[in-house]
Amino acid sequence: MVSQIKYTKPQVLRMLVDVRDPEIPVLSIEEIGMLRDVVIHENSCEVIITPTYTACPAMAMIEKDIKLTLTAQGISQVKVTTVYAPAWSTDWMSSDTKEKLRAFGIAAPLHSGCAAAEDRPTIVECPRCFSTKTTLISQFGSTACKALYRCEKCLEPFDYFKCH
């Protein structure tokens, strides 16, 4: 069976580098871990994504961006499939990705599974001045995936990308 799609999976993955999380435009959906797979079918291309949070409001926009990006490259039949398993984890972020987050002003997740009280991060470093004297203001910040902190040294509030 020869696919009518003239691109290979790695080529499609490269095209999708331009699709960003609208809340964190410095990261592609692959870097953040939302892009799970690309499957080239006979007449269509299927992109499999997973939400960061079940109610991630960016999903509809990301799906639209994927379709627009691939259609612009001449792939007319694009299907976007959302899967919940395996559950998205901040562990999928590489150290490069975490550094991009920090440079953008968001403190990167320290480790996984820290939702339990005893596992909570004790020291979250300020992404701007690197001080470790910071205070948790709210577990739920500008979006569900971030907590709000304040740096006691430079006095700036900042987002912390929660472990998940």
């Binding site: 079940t54 398993a85 395996p86 339990a116 739920f140």
Partner: peptide, 20 residues
């Protein structure tokens, strides 16, 4: 498997809700 998949996602959120 679908319930298990949704639960694996929900448990992470539920822990944050309980600690809040």
């Amino acid at each position: 498997v679908t319930i298990a998949g949704i639960a694996a996602k929900a448990i992470k959120e539920a822990k944050y809700h309980a600690s809040h």
